[in-house]
Structures are given as structure tokens and as C-alpha cells.
Amino acid sequence: MSQIENVHTKARELLESQAVDCVIGFGKGTTGGSRPLFVYGPEGVEDLIFDETCAHNLAKYLLNRKGKTTAVVLKACDARAVNLLLSEHQIERDKVYMIGVVCPGIKENGEPRDTCLRCGQRTPVSYDYLAGEPEEATVDAELQYKGVAEMEAMSMAERKAFWEAQFDRCIRCYACRQVCPGCYCDECFVERLDPLWVGIRIAPSENEMWNAMRAFHLTGRCIGCDQCERVCPVGIPLSLLNRKLEKEVYETFGYEAGMDPEAAPPFATYKKEESLGFGE
């Protein structure tokens, strides 16, 4: 059976047995691509599709379904997002059924996403059921930190000018945050009034503060799905910022977010022997 037929069979089985209330997968969209699809009964499972237009990270939706049983169709990056949420105790493992799919690499307007070219995974690291045949990806090592090395080669003044020019066109719609599986605070710092962290102006200084603080909050937590960059209506290269920080975390702690739900996240861990840098 094909991968999608396996997804249909598994989804039907889970809904019929009432093991889950809902299956979140991909369905056909209106503009030639796909879109997230919520299936609540076995009669809807045939509408589930999976192809190279299925760019969305469906793990985000699990945050809206706390306490309810949900099966979710997961590509490799999306499965890492589920692991991130598990490691941060945002969702319960026994409420989530992970239907893994082997990802062909996602295309946008017929071209492979940069994200997918540098992704070392076609098969999810975690799943309850794998619908396809496991596959290794061929990764272009040069692409892994594409743009990061160039950014590191810039002087501080050049870097500042580069990011100022990018953040200048930010309209603070917060789509990057809304789509991000790692952004789930009840009250985001940017909307907090007391204390006021960032003013409401959509202007260079505030835009820079917003984008920089969001990047720091994601450090060691970004799973590299690049949904933020995909949805940004003004094309800010947010992935570049996140990959720079992930590179730092990897080089310092050897940690990659979402690879292992049991691994302790570096910024949520304290070891007694760690130096606090207070000259002790």
C-alpha cells in the first residue's frame, strides 16, 4: 500500500476505535496546494493527502487540544516539534498519537525549500506508526549553515546594518510567533503591559527588540522547520537568525532541539558543577 493509503487506514482505525477524537493531517487547498485538515470521524479520512506541498507544521495545533486525544500526521521536522513540546511538558504523550510520514522534501512554487535541502531527515525521529518506507536524505553539507558563515564574516557594524534593514519592514503581525511550535506563552512578552518590555510602535527600535527577543527565547529550542520564514508576509530571513543561534547551542552543548524527548534542554537544566560566572 502507498504511504497515503496507510495513513487513511491508520486514521480510520484510530477514529473508529475512538482511540482519538480527531486526526490532524493535510487536505487539498484551494490554490493548488495543501492545507491543514482536521478529521473528526472515519468518513473524512479519504480527504487526507500527503505530497510535496504539505509545508505546514501540524504539531502547533496540539497546543489547542490539551487534554483531548489527537492523532497527528508528522514529517521529520514536525515530529521534532512534538518532541520539543513533550520535553517542555506542554503536551501529554498518551494523548498524542504520532503518525509519521516519510517526507519527500517540501517544494514551494515547484522549487525545493532551502530548509528541506539542508534537512538530514526524511524519516521522523519519533513516531507511533510509520506510514512509509524509511529513507535517508542526501544532505548538501554546504547548505547546513548557508548564510550563517557569511553573516559571521560581517563586522558588527555590517551585521547591525543588515538586520536593521531586514527588521525595518517588519509589520509586527506576529505571524512568526503564531505559527511557531516553540511559541506558546500564555502572555507573550511583547504584549505584556506591566512591566512593559517593548512599546507598541511598529518602528525600527521596537521591531528590532521584538525580533531579537523572540530569537533569544527560541535559542536551543528551534527545531528548524522554518515556518516563521515561510509565513512572514514581508520576507524577513528569520531562519538565518535561528540557525546562527542553533549553531552556537550545538557547538557549546552538542544539543539539537526535538531529537530526543527525554534529553534535557540546555536552558532548562542546571548542574551543580556548572560555573555561574560570578567568580566563585
Binding site: 492545507r35 491543514p36 485538515l37 482536521f38 502547533k60 495545533y61 489547542n64 509589520i171 503581525c173 506576529y174 505571524a175 503564531q178 505559527v179 509565513v231 508576509p233
Partner: peptide, 11 residues
């Protein structure tokens, strides 16, 4: 269900 409330539509 699938809306992210990302505000892009209104912006």
C-alpha cells in the same frame, strides 16, 4: 481549527 490567528490577513 486550522486558523493560526497570525493576523496576516488583516495586516
Amino acid at each position: 481549527d486550522r486558523c493560526l490567528h497570525c493576523n496576516v490577513c488583516s495586516y
